[in-house]
Design a protein around this nucleic acid. Structure first.
Lengths: 185, 185
DNA sequence: TTTTATTTAGACTGGTCTGTCTAAAATTAT
DNA sequence: ATAATTTTAGACAGACCAGTCTAAATAAAA
């Protein structure tokens, strides 16, 4: 079971560095140095740097969904859970350093070099969207907008606000998004 | 006046490559090769690669505002100009290759390495926001939302939809944003 | 115990990168 | 015509990078 903890340590360190510095700016040398792990062990667990990136992104989305379940479990009113999706992102940004969505950041840092990866990121993004759609469909919101239109609204406002977060390093835009959404549910 | 055209050629080529491939993935060698310009000439006009990036981003915002004026001039109804702001972005994406907003892409590709540049990008983004706010304030829209809230809505929806554009390489999200906004003006 | 899987340190290859430099040629200005 | 500016080709330094390899040590499994 040691092999597992070492792999996790690599994912933790690399994930943190990818998110803070960007994928291209983060070298294998820095990852293994900060994780305190030998070079050979890295290539024992991952075939390449891009393999590590994919594993990191997969785990990110997984953790995001698990974390959302936990965060939303404390919100009783199903309608309030919709704005809770944005509040969850505010909490994550405050914890992890205001660099926006990890998926979006990875995509922007690699664009057009690797079409395969972009496709994969699209599938992961879709998983997050499906989660939002499920929360909305169970919310019993007033039908000012249809379920689909409200899902679009929430996803687009969230992504837009996270762009602002990444540029300005604050959560003002996300808080504006909460207000705009609250008026519509 | 030759010096000017050569500088412009460098900005054109570098801008295209930065936008298509990303800043980190684009080397000086490729820029000068594709521009057909000598290495020394590059450093005669720009002190460094990041100096070129700043000049490119400044010019991008400038051109964006000039282009928006031209695009919106053909829309007579002031209310329709609001959705026109998004349609302008659809037109740009179709012309330039579905890689989202150049400013956002640059920010995501460099984050945390250079705080100075992030600050500068924030100022440029504010210029674009001011332009949007001006269009809205002159639109005579129904006040379902205040001018400020509608500006937030338009900017956040646009940025969110451009994220989707960069990931999926289509303009569906931008078209959804047009519909959502049209219902509110 | 013996075998297999995991981890270590670090050298090494082949490549890329930004930025500097030189010396000459072409262009432009005075 | 002379001087100043701009452009050229290409070599070069110094640094970093991803990925391979070796040989030995440690840990786990059989």
């Amino acid at each position: 079971m040691k092999e597992n903890s070492l792999r996790e340590r690599l994912l933790d360190t690399a994930g943190r560095l990818f998110y803070e510095q960007g994928y291209q700016q983060t070298g294998i040398n820095q990852i293994i140095a900060e994780a305190g792990i030998a070079r050979g062990s890295f290539y024992y667990h991952f075939s390449s740097k891009s393999g590590l990136l994919v594993a990191y992104l997969d785990r990110f989305v997984n953790n995001w969904i698990v974390g959302a379940d936990i965060f939303l479990a404390e919100i009783i009113d199903p309608k309030a859970r919709i704005a809770g999706l944005i509040r969850y992102r505010i909490a994550n940004q405050k914890k992890n350093g205001f660099n926006g969505c990890a998926l979006v950041k990875a995509n922007a840092g690699l664009e057009a070099v690797d079409g395969e990866l972009r496709k994969h990121i699209g599938e992961l993004k879709q998983q997050m969207r499906d989660y939002v759609a499920a929360v909305i469909s169970r919310s019993g919101h007033q039908k000012i907008l249809s379920d689909e239109a409200l899902t679009d609204m929430v996803v687009l406002l969230a992504d837009g606000a996270l762009v602002g977060t990444a540029i300005y390093h604050h959560t003002e835009d996300l808080e504006k998004a909460v207000e705009l959404i609250t008026a519509l549910v």
